[in-house]
């Protein structure tokens, strides 16, 4: 049985939501691991959760990338194990150089907490392997800095190599400026690394894993992660 680690930084605030979804709802053993720990030995997948690690001071993720646990994260990434960054966790993975691009402030210059439509672009990834072709997701975002930026060359590489995993779209599944909440380049909501095992996304599957919370679409992403991890353990 695989074991999941959720890393906790000072200022993280979504670690228990991720743990609850994986462990209480889906029955997978999931531990919270403190950022000053140096090892993730015995874990088959790691999640960097949302929140405001180190208060988002300097830049989101900019201080967290120096936490001792990030060395262990790097090691897991090198071993090909799934490493998932959600929201603030995505920003950390960018700051650590494990994922491309950077996050600018949202175009509105405000924090945005809202349900929106998400189109999986790629079904061969740790979070989407269980989805069906053309399936649209309703998942909320909650961030002030989710405006994905990368230079043209990087964007071109990401697109060409199918590394864009999620995109913001309208209710019909089409790209449209008004459906892009933060101004992200190419409406990018989630990307993966070249090898495909490190994935970051701004939306929060950890906030929509049961119908009573709005939708249960987030559950599908966690189920994909569990299946993907089991296949590789």
């Amino acid at each position: 049985m695989p074991r999941f680690a959720v890393c906790v930084f000072p200022g993280s605030n979504c670690e228990e939501d991720v743990q609850y979804a994986l462990q209480n709802v889906l029955g997978e053993p999931t531990d919270l691991v403190w950022h000053k720990d140096t090892s993730l030995e015995g874990y088959d997948a790691a999640i960097l959760p949302g929140g405001f690690a180190h208060g988002d001071y300097l830049r989101p993720g900019a201080v967290a990338r120096f936490s001792p646990i990030m060395t262990a994260i790097q090691k897991m990434a090198d071993e090909g194990k799934p490493v998932i960054g959600i929201c603030n966790g995505f920003q950390m993975l960018q700051e650590a150089g494990l994922l491309p691009g950077a996050m600018l402030r949202n175009q509105t210059l405000t924090y945005i907490c809202r349900y929106l439509h998400l189109r999986p672009e790629q079904l061969d990834s740790p979070l989407t392997s269980g989805l069906s072709e053309g399936e649209l997701l309703r998942i909320p975002i909650g961030h002030a800095d989710g405006n994905f930026y990368a230079d043209d060359e990087t964007l071109e590489t990401l697109e060409r190599n199918d590394r864009v995993v999620f995109r913001y779209v309208n209710a019909q599944g089409a790209r449209e400026d008004t459906a892009n909440p933060n101004g992200a380049a190419n409406a990018i909501a989630g990307v993966r690394n070249e090898r495909g095992n490190v994935l970051g996304l701004m939306p929060h599957p950890d906030r929509c894993y049961q119908e009573e919370l709005g939708t249960a679409d987030g559950r599908k992403l966690f189920e994909s992660l569990i299946a993907w991890t089991k296949e590789r353990t």
């Binding site: 605030n13 939501d17 979804a21 405000t110 924090y111 907490c113 909650g142 709005g214």
Partner: peptide, 25 residues
Amino acid sequence: EQYDHMVQSNTIVMPGGDAGVIRVK
């Protein structure tokens, strides 16, 4: 929408309703 109203994943009546409702895990 500028307020995070979903963190802790307990919100079962969103802002805009008559009252805010959270479940108690």
